[in-house]
Nucleic acid binder design. Structure first.
Lengths: 197, 197
DNA sequence: CTAGGCCCTCACGCGACGTGAGGGTCAAGC
DNA sequence: GCTTGACCCTCACGTCGCGTGAGGGCCTAG
């Protein structure tokens, strides 16, 4: 019933699943400074502290750096929107990157299961930034019919059709679930978008 | 047409989108040691090197540590399966964690949009390991009706119903796409599973 | 033969903590 | 009041995956 109740660092650590050291760190860098100390120097966290930590954990789960989290939490609304929008752009880039990698990985796996050698050109689409097509010619010329290339495929193709079908099945289910998880990212981005209008 | 063609570190960097320093690092730790050097000491990468790097990048995108990647790539089939299975377990834990966080975040957001104060008990479900219910009582007793708690909610609830609906719409689309991306994780896990049988 | 672009090896810095070392604090029980 | 044991404190160095120079060789074109 006491309105100004506080808790120790160990309690907060157990409650959140973070370590004591992590909370020390957040104090050191000014991200989460406890609202008080006991006469003996012990940190004391109150309700507002816990609420702030909840937000910190949520943002951190979205991949934001601690300094960025501090900026977002300490800035007024308008600045918040701008900052979050920049983060949104970064996330978009990351999403697109992963999406491309995933596409190539999927084709690679299927090909392996069939025991078929992949078109070497496709291999390099898995890699990052800027259009890899601009190197595709060079690649095909250099690696198109290297022995080590094809050989390294055959090493890893002992994988029955049953195994593969079973895998595909399970994949679909988990895929959907994971999609729901990742909506947390997207929520953050779209929230920022809404704020700027 | 030459079968033993090689490329320099800069070419490989441009091709993959990694930095030269990153390739230096992989050489230092023995993860990707170039198959040769020129008389002048320049690194030379051949087809097998590039193929290995492709695998490295794929595993890294799945969140594996570089030392783990080395173990997986250098181990024979049976050990590979064991290692990948342990990684699978880790990923499962992480997935479950994210799934819980996402669920609570979703409810929090909806509640904020409605301007409704959340059941304080729910706040702590966002946090990690082991059943948080075991602390729920303690939490409610301490923070259930703190002023700072409710206050910090009202600060952040300026968000129209239209904005919210628009957000929900966009979310669904991106959610599906992201699910596809994350199947890369799942593929790795299930591949390991198939190997052990 | 010189200019430029590429490459080399140290070697220190960073972010987000982990992991002790060495010592003070606090509530409980005697 | 005193001790015990759990908890807390502040340094301070280690880890991982690189970034970022510094100071210098290599190598091809003009």
């Amino acid at each position: 019933m006491d309105d100004s109740q506080t808790m120790g660092i160990g309690d907060l650590a157990r409650l959140t699943g973070l370590t004591v050291r992590t909370l020390h760190h957040y104090d050191e860098i000014g991200l989460l400074v406890p609202s008080g100390r006991t006469s003996g120097g012990y940190r004391e966290y109150d309700g507002a502290d816990v609420d702030r930590l909840r937000q910190i954990v949520a943002y951190r789960a979205c991949g934001l750096a601690l300094t960025d989290i501090a900026e977002v939490l300490d800035a007024p609304g308008t600045e918040q929107a701008g900052h979050l929008q920049r983060q949104m752009a970064l996330l978009d880039k990351r999403i697109e990157e992963l999406r491309r990698q995933r596409a190539v990985l999927g084709r690679t796996w299927e090909a392996k299961q069939m025991g078929i050698a992949l078109d070497p050109e496709e291999y390099f689409e898995v890699f990052g930034e800027s259009d890899p097509r601009q190197y595709a010619d060079e690649v095909q010329e250099r690696w198109g019919d290297t022995d080590a290339y094809a050989e390294s495929h055959r090493r890893t193709s002992g994988f029955s059709k049953e195994d593969w079908l079973r895998a595909q099945e399970q994949t679909a289910a988990v895929e959907a679930e994971f999609g729901a998880c990742m909506a947390a990212y997207v929520h953050a981005a779209i929230y920022a978008n809404a704020l700027t209008r």
